[in-house]
Design a protein around this nucleic acid. Structure first.
Length: 490
RNA sequence: GGUCAGUUGGCCGAGUGGCUAGGCAGCGGUCUGCAAAACCGUGUACGGCGGUUCGAAUCCGCCACCGACCUCCA
């Protein structure tokens, strides 16, 4: 199976030919959300980017098992491997059970993902549902000599691991350099090494979420869940692991170490990292307080927003930058995206009523090749979109009678549009406003037919009055050669 | 300080050793009773300084600026 697809592999820091381990099967794991608060738009960007990647892999014919986890335990407030986890803290704050917090924000996350028209992953495993798998993995790592237990907490021995494997390979850093950036251990520390991190954390009497283990009651460290669940569902070695760039240095580095220490094999062939969404050049994040909630964006209910933007406009906005580039969030950029989006959708409607001729004056095959070339080049959606606008131009020109198309080419063009606009970019046209019922449609047609009569009689005062008043009510009128078209403004 | 990205025309955003995406906005035109929409035309941009080359925005070096990660975050 040769698809000419190239993927930028963080591990090698270059684009590589994509060759799945067991074609046509592809295993893809993406680090999902920690469900202790609402997902913001930056989180969404990563999942929308991987949705595009998933959709294109499916389109190419791969049988993809897409696993995206839900982190619902073990994610601590700081990186000191001590203190409460995020769920317990939030639960106390809202006077709820931790699992109520998990449920609330998991549902919220799914709701938002549906609005953005993302496909559901094949499996969406949660950390709390895989405690025993995590414990088994930790036991194996201890048995292999890369972890040690101290007072009910199990730590990963980074320096020991680095003697046999390369710890900082994902970020191209040496252990010595990493050590320089860490604080000295205090006398009370249980860790042997400054870079050691917890695989299992001993529960305190007040800890709300805890499970029994060979080391007493406790809960898993943040990183082990991904190692355990990816191994369980995708095997000891799988094709693609994705996540936000911010996870690269710590979370993914530790994940590689855990899996390698347990299974004695590098877990992932292609590491993919999405770049950050920024606001005025600064990363959107929970801690910076500059996060937009998707709902605020849809409604426009936010001090930085001039108006609301539909989920499909936002999805389009995200596709117009490459997943490895930062994307800066601004009103102007969204307004442009909105125009693009409607243009694309309108052309899609015109496409369905184009008339064919014997010969084509346009080159549809070339257009099609260009689209595939763009996506094969590390999922370059901005370039894909530029080619789709060539398709828009062609469609409009044919409609205006300035270009012609054969039935065969029209079929190819329709299939191309369906593939890339709807299947791959994941856009839907449900956001184009239409009349709410047949009566409205008939009334508008009736009024516009009266206007046509006025025009015929050169009574332009009346025809312009009708147009102005309908425009004021949100009905946009376009005169054609022998009639009219109309649509509703949003 | 270390690691990794980036700096492209009014704006967004690709890309590549020579043929110099695309869109938005602007300007001119076609069409129209006038509009709107659509289409056509129009902008010669690649942070600075050196170097390699017949030729660099594209490769190399230095510098400047900005960002991410190195402390929880997709």
């Amino acid at each position: 199976m040769n698809t000419n697809l190239k993927i930028f592999n963080t591990l090698k820091r270059k684009k590589e030919d994509f060759e799945p381990i067991n074609p046509p099967f592809v295993g893809m794991y993406v680090c999902g959300p920690t469900v202790y608060s609402d997902v913001h738009l930056g989180n969404c960007r990563t999942f929308i980017s991987f949705d595009l990647i998933y959709r294109y892999l499916l389109h190419l014919g791969y049988k993809v098992r897409y696993v995206r986890n839900i982190t619902d335990a073990g994610h601590l407030e700081g990186d000191r491997d001590e203190g409460d986890d995020k769920f317990a803290k939030k639960a106390k704050l809202e006077q709820l059970e931790p699992m109520e917090i998990v449920q609330k924000y998991t549902l919220g996350f799914h709701h938002v993902m549906r609005k953005f028209n993302t496909l559901s992953p094949s499996i969406e495993p949660s950390a709390t549902g895989h405690i025993s798998e995590q414990i088994e993995m930790i036991k194996e790592i201890i048995a292999n000599g890369y972890a040690y237990e101290k007072n009910g907490t199990v730590y990963f021995d980074v320096e020991k691991y680095n003697k046999d494997y390369s710890y900082g390979q994902l970020t191209n850093r040496k252990l010595e350099e990493l050590l320089e950036g860490t604080r000295e251990l205090s006398g009370q520390d249980e860790k042997k090494g400054r870079l050691d991190f917890a695989l299992w954390i001993n529960a305190k009497p007040e800890t709300l979420m805890k499970w029994p283990s060979p080391w007493g009651w406790g809960f898993p460290g943040w990183h082990i869940e991904c190692s355990a669940m990816s191994t369980k569902y995708l095997g000891e070695m799988f094709d693609i692991h994705g996540g936000g760039m911010d996870l690269q240095a710590t979370h993914h580095t530790n994940e590689i170490a855990q899996s390698q220490a347990c299974n004695q094999t590098a877990p992932v062939k292609y590491w993919m990292h999405t770049n950050m969404l920024t606001v005025n050049g600064v990363r959107m994040s929970k801690s910076a307080g500059n996060g937009f909630l998707p709902e605020e964006l849809f409604t426009g209910n936010h001090p930085l927003l001039e108006k609301g933007y539909s989920p499909m406009v936002v999805r389009f906005f995200m596709a117009q930058s490459h997943y490895r580039s930062t994307l800066d969030f601004s009103n102007e950029a969204l307004q442009t995206a909105e125009k693009w989006y409607y243009k694309l959708m309108k052309a899609g409607q015109i496409l369905n009523k184009l008339k064919t001729q014997d010969k084509s004056s346009v080159n549809i095959e070339e257009l099609k090749n260009n689209c595939y070339e763009a996506m094969n080049d590390d999922f370059n959606s901005p370039v894909l979109i530029s080619h789709l606008f060539e398709a828009v131009r062609i469609i409009n020109s044919i409609n205006d009678g300035k270009e012609s198309i054969s039935q065969n080419d029209l079929d190819v063009l329709k299939s191309l549009y369906k593939t890339f606009v709807y299947d791959v970019l994941g856009l839907t046209n449900e956001d184009i406003p239409s009349a709410s019922n047949d009566l409205t449609t008939e009334l508008i047609n009736l009024i516009l037919n009266l206007r046509m009569e006025a025009k015929k009689n050169k009574d332009f005062a009346t025809s312009d009055k009708i147009r102005n008043e309908l425009t004021a009510k949100g009905v946009i009128i376009k005169d054609t050669k022998d009639g009219f078209e109309w649509e509703l403004a949003d």
